[in-house]
């Protein structure tokens, strides 16, 4: 089942990549020669290795993380639930609805389909496309910036997963909120994919949100080169962000934290776009910063 899903995912996302490449990429700011591509590959390698290490560590941490966080983590389901119940107070000050409940109360089969597609295919596509677009782009910084920003997302996000244990809306207010995607006929099997990647207690912050918003923020930094991509990524990111709540997977607080994480990650990406982060330089910077703070 998992294999079938992965194949379907690969086919659909490849299709999206081909179309987007044709639409977005322009010839005037692309690298000219094979030699230039080879150089690009070599100079990006240290960044790639860094991301690789973090992704492997991320996978390991997500496997053992939940058990560890059940023991040492803070249980914040109730807190997230209560925050979620406060945010919509302008709608009904005396008894504000839960954000997620409110979104699902407007559910239609069409919207469920659209947001399910955005959550699965749109998300994977928007994570991969920047590699294609920025790899062929003339200045090397956007690619490095992207890699560092992704790495920061995973590093900070997974650390939060260990520190905070929380269940998503569908596991806290089941009468009001349902796992819409997993109940939709054609998407039930996708839970194989999501559950093999992530445990159900890894909700705070929403990495779907943070990575999608990261891509949109990065697209803003390259709006001169790829104006169309900025538009596409913004629409997609907004869809993914809404999807996480609409589908009953994340609380509004997870999403807000995800947006904050995206902003921080892009800042980190920009800081290290000239040189990859190294432990000793971080330590020096930290030591230099300390007296100033003290």
């Amino acid at each position: 089942m998992l294999v079938e899903i992965l194949i379907r995912l690969a086919i659909i996302v490849s299709g999206m990549l081909v179309v987007a490449t044709a639409l977005v990429l322009r010839s005037d700011n692309r690298l000219g020669s094979w030699a230039a591509y080879r150089d690009r590959f070599e100079e990006t390698l240290p960044y790639g290795v860094l991301l690789g290490i973090i992704l492997v560590a991320n996978k390991i941490a997500r496997d053992i993380g939940p058990e560890l966080s059940w023991i040492i983590g803070f249980h914040i389901t109730e807190t997230l639930y209560r925050i979620d119940g406060l945010l919509l107070w302008p709608l009904n000050p005396s008894n504000p609805p839960q954000v997620v409940t409110f979104l699902q109360s407007h559910a239609t089969p069409g919207m469920t389909m659209y947001f399910s597609y955005a959550y699965v295919y749109g998300y994977v596509f928007m994570l991969i496309f920047p590699f294609v677009a920025y790899f062929v782009l003339n200045p090397p910084e956007p690619l490095r910036r992207t890699i560092v920003a992704y790495a920061a997302n995973y590093l900070i996000g997974v650390t939060c997963y260990v520190i905070f244990v929380a269940q998503g809306p569908r596991n806290r207010i089941p009468g009001e909120v349902r796992g819409l995607m997993y109940e939709a006929d054609s998407f039930a099997a996708y839970q194989f994919l999501t559950s093999s990647i992530n445990a159900n207690v890894n909700v705070f912050p929403s990495l779907h949100t943070s990575l999608a918003v990261t891509v949109a923020l990065l697209a803003w930094t390259t709006r001169e080169e790829y104006p169309l991509w900025f538009v596409i990524s913004t629409v997609l990111a907004a869809s993914v962000v809404f999807a996480t709540m609409y589908l009953g997977i994340h609380w509004a607080a997870d999403v807000l934290a995800g947006i904050a994480l995206a902003w921080v990650s892009v800042r980190i990406g920009k800081r290290y776009e000239d040189r990859p982060p190294r432990l000793d330089s971080i330590r020096r910077r930290y030591e230099r910063a300390m007296p100033a703070r003290g």
Partner: peptide
């Protein structure tokens, strides 16, 4: 299986 819905899908597919 990750959910009961997925279980029914797998059964339907003969897996």
């Amino acid at each position: 299986v990750p959910s009961h819905d997925a279980a029914v899908d797998l059964l339907d597919a003969g897996d």
